[in-house]
C-alpha cells in the first residue's frame, strides 16, 4: 500500500510542479497561458543545452532554466500579454500563437536550419538528458524501495510550493499580487504599480514552468511537442483547485495524483486517466468555482 501512495504522491508532485506557475499567472492576471507547456519545453531544452555546452547536470540546470523560462515569460508579458489584460479570449489566442512560435523556433533552430546550420541539441529530433547517478539508484526506507529521482521531484515541489507560499503571503510583493488578484483597479488606486508587479508575476510563473521542464526531461524525451500534453494536466489542477488558490492547487494535485495512482495500480492506466477526468467533471459540477476559491476579478 505504501508504494501505491508513493506513486500517487509522485504523480501529484509532477502535476503540482506544472500547475504551480499556471495557477499564479491565471490567478493574478486572469490570463489562461496556453504557452505554459512550451515554457516547460523551454526548461527541458535548457537542461539539454547546458548539458551539451556547459557540462551542467540536471540539478545545475535548474536555476538556469528558471532564469531562461522566466526571461522569456517576462518578454512575452511585455510584448504581447500586457496589451490584452481583461480580454480572456484574446489572451487565449495570443498565448496559443506564442506557443506555436516557441515550438517552431526550437524545431527550426531559430531559423538557422534554413541556412543549413545545425545546432546540437535543437531541431526536430528527440533529445535526452542524463540523470546524475545518485538519482538513478533506488534506496530502501523501512523495507520499501523508494525511487530517488521521484523523491527528488517531490522534495523540489514541496520546496517550490513553500517558496511560492512565502512570496505570496509573507512579503510585500505578495501582498501586492494578492491585492491585484482581488481587485486590480483598487490596487492601482492604492499606489501599487500593477504593470510592474504583473510582469514580475508572469516571469516568476514562467520560471517555475522552466524548472518543471528540467525535471520532466529526466522522465521522458525532450522534443518540441512535449509541452502540449502537459499543459492539459496543469489546467485540470488549476480548475479543480480554484482559480488562483495556492492551497487549492496543492490539494487538487494531491487528490488527482492519488486517484490516478490508485486506479492505475489496481486496474490500468487507461482507466485511471478516464476516472481522473470523470472526477474532475463531477467536482466542477458540484463546485464550479473550484475546491478553494474566493471572489476575484
Amino acid at each position: 500500500m505504501a508504494d501505491v501512495i508513493f506513486i500517487g504522491l509522485s504523480l501529484s508532485s509532477i502535476l503540482l510542479l506544472i500547475a504551480l506557475g499556471l495557477t499564479i499567472i491565471y490567478g493574478a492576471m486572469g490570463v489562461i497561458n496556453m504557452a505554459h507547456g512550451e515554457l516547460v519545453m523551454i526548461g527541458a531544452y535548457t537542461a539539454v543545452m547546458t548539458g551539451i555546452y556547459l557540462g551542467f547536470n540536471l540539478i545545475a540546470a535548474l536555476p538556469v532554466a528558471f532564469l531562461v523560462a522566466g526571461g522569456i515569460g517576462f518578454l512575452m508579458e511585455r510584448a504581447v500579454i500586457r496589451h490584452l489584460y481583461g480580454r480572456l479570449l484574446d489572451t487565449l489566442l495570443a498565448t496559443w500563437g506564442i506557443a506555436i512560435i516557441l515550438k517552431q523556433a526550437i524545431r527550426l533552430e531559430f531559423g538557422l536550419s534554413f541556412l543549413d546550420i545545425h545546432i546540437d541539441g535543437l531541431g526536430t529530433g528527440l533529445q535526452n538528458v542524463a540523470i546524475p547517478a545518485f538519482l538513478n539508484q533506488p534506496w530502501s526506507i523501512g523495507g520499501i524501495e523508494v525511487q530517488s529521482y521521484r523523491t527528488f521531484i517531490i522534495l523540489l515541489t514541496v520546496f517550490l510550493a513553500l517558496v511560492t507560499w512565502f512570496l505570496m503571503y509573507r512579503t510585500s510583493y505578495g501582498i501586492q499580487v494578492r491585492a491585484i488578484m482581488r481587485n486590480a483597479d483598487m490596487a492601482a488606486a492604492c499606489g501599487i504599480d500593477v504593470k510592474k508587479v504583473s510582469s514580475l508575476t508572469f516571469a516568476y510563473g514562467s520560471g517555475l514552468a522552466g524548472v518543471a521542464g528540467v525535471m520532466m526531461a529526466g522522465f521522458k524525451t525532450v522534443s518540441p511537442d512535449m509541452g502540449s500534453s502537459l499543459v492539459v494536466d496543469g489546467f485540470l489542477v488549476v480548475v479543480v483547485g480554484g482559480v488562483g488558490s495556492l492551497l487549492g492547487s496543492v490539494a487538487s494535485a494531491g487528490f488527482l495524483g492519488q486517484v490516478n495512482g490508485i486506479f492505475a495500480t489496481y486496474s490500468n492506466d487507461i482507466l485511471a486517466r478516464a476516472v481522473v477526468f470523470g472526477v474532475v467533471i463531477l467536482i466542477i459540477m458540484w463546485r464550479p468555482q473550484g475546491l478553494f476559491s474566493f471572489k476575484g476579478r
Partner: peptide, 15 residues
C-alpha cells in the same frame, strides 16, 4: 497490459 500511445507516466505499470 496496455498504456495509451504517447503516455509517459510508467510508475504504476512498472510496479
Amino acid at each position: 497490459e496496455y498504456l495509451e500511445l504517447g503516455h509517459s507516466e510508467w510508475g504504476a505499470m512498472v510496479k
